[in-house]
């Protein structure tokens, strides 16, 4: 009755709402946890102590060199055709503007293709991207590469429609990357509402002028840590099921949903298993990554340092797509492994979360998956997730304690059963 015991404890037993309450205490105390910030390092120290107090084994920190970027004050004011103060969020790694700001006419485009067609109009202007939302993976390319593409055609700054599935005038931040040999121009996200308004204005032939001010600054790399804790395997302790989420966040809201809840549901999975006195045959290893938002910096280093043991990794799991009511598991692995995962998910019939989808992935586990280790991610209402993450709305209010209970139940059952099977998942 292991699966039933885990679900009962998580959903209606004494562990009910525990992951939500633990997370609320952390994020209400330290706030958002931008890589390179004192907030993140304080959160890591608190988590280290939390995991020790929880009685988990082999609790330790693994140091990582991480980028250090700070936002500073920022503003964007439309000067023509009318005065309008715009909500913006500068993008991670963006350079700032001169103190007096950049004042320039706007060129609105809806795609990179349109930008390239109208390249001759872009010189000296602020490029505004009004790309349609075609799902996160496709639309996020505008945030990541928007500044580089605009700079290539002579723009002085870029303002990008937030990559958001829904908006109530809420800009979303995120990482962007410069390219060697291309001028580094300031870049920020604007709201869906302002991007669409400027597109309408431009289509009418109206001249738009914006003054952009950003104090953003990049500092030398600093030190952070991946946080690790385990339930040591009883029979094959060297073999591992890795359960994870990332502890860093952007510097907006509370980083509650991205990825505080994923990290805390992962911790909760080990807590539930330990509370029930269970000890799987293989080691259950919790890793709370650092610097995921900067492109999986902590997890890349972890992979490089631990890949020598890759044959001992049975399954890598990451929860970084929200912890609303789970709809199932996204899984990448062989047909044989998938068939086994489907059987494991059948154990979750009592909470009606039995589906195994394709494309299990996560920034922090992709290195392992690409190297052939089976990988799983927790799936839920992604539209809701992409409405909140990277925005000021990423707070505890966006989360629901009961939904986190169900997420934790799924995570604990899957991780425990796979870690306890007689054999590792087939590759």
């Amino acid at each position: 009755d292991v699966a039933k015991a885990i679900v009962d404890l998580a959903v209606c037993g004494k562990a009910q709402n525990r992951s939500y309450e633990r997370l609320a205490l952390l994020v209400d105390t330290v706030g958002p946890r931008l890589t390179g910030s004192p907030n993140l390092e304080k959160a890591i120290q608190i988590m280290y102590q939390n995991l020790m107090d929880d009685g988990l084994k082999n609790v330790h920190l693994e140091p990582v060199k991480v980028p250090h970027w700070e936002r500073g004050q920022e503003s964007a004011v439309m000067l023509e055709p009318r005065n309008h103060s715009m909500a913006i969020l500068g993008l991670g790694s963006s350079v700032g503007t001169p103190p007096e700001g950049i004042t320039a006419e706007v060129l609105v485009v809806s795609s990179f293709d349109e930008l390239h067609r109208r390249a001759s109009e872009a010189r000296g202007k602020i490029v505004v991207y009004n790309q349609p939302y075609k799902g996160y993976g496709e639309s996020v390319q505008y945030r990541v590469q928007g500044a580089v593409e605009a700079a290539k055609v002579g723009a002085v700054a870029s303002l990008i429609k937030s990559v958001a599935s829904f908006s109530i005038y809420s800009p979303h931040t995120g990482i962007q990357y410069y390219q060697d040999g291309v001028p580094q121009i300031p870049t920020a996200c604007i709201t869906v509402e302002d991007a669409e308004m400027m597109a309408r204005m431009a289509s009418r032939g109206t001249k738009i002028v914006i003054q952009l001010k950003m104090e953003a600054k990049n500092y030398p790399d600093t030190e952070s840590f991946n946080t690790v804790a385990e339930i040591t395997g009883s029979k094959y302790p060297e073999q591992v099921v890795l359960v994870s989420g990332h502890l860093d966040s952007w510097d907006v809201g509370q980083g509650a949903l991205d990825d505080g809840s994923g990290a805390f549901v992962s911790w909760e999975a080990l807590s539930l298993i330990k509370d029930l006195g269970l000890r799987p045959k293989r080691t259950l290893r919790l890793v709370l990554w650092t610097a995921e938002e900067q492109g999986g910096i902590g997890s890349l280093q972890y992979y490089q340092q631990h890949k020598v043991n890759i044959s001992n990794f049975s399954l890598v799991m990451e929860s970084d797509l929200g912890n609303f009511m789970p709809t199932g598991l996204a899984f990448t692995g062989s047909d044989k492994a998938r068939a086994i995962m489907k059987e494991v998910m059948n154990l979750l019939q009592p909470i009606n979360t039995t589906q195994v989808f394709g494309d299990g992935e996560g920034v922090d586990i992709n290195y392992w998956i690409q190297a052939g280790v089976p990988g799983a991610s927790l799936l839920d209402d992604l539209k809701r997730y992409f409405s909140f993450h990277h925005s000021q709305g990423d707070t505890m209010t966006a989360l629901d304690p009961m939904q986190m209970n169900y997420s934790a139940a799924v995570w604990a059952v899957v991780s425990y059963v796979i870690a306890d099977l007689d054999e590792m998942l087939p590759r």
């Binding site: 039933k4 094959y236 494991v344 059948n346 059952v413 059963v417 007689d422 998942l425």
Partner: peptide, 24 residues
Amino acid sequence: RAVCKDVCHLKTFEQIKEEIAGYQ
């Protein structure tokens, strides 16, 4: 140590299915 790596799968799928059902 009796380590079952990915090169050494001894159980049939039916046996694994029965094993998993034991966790219900």
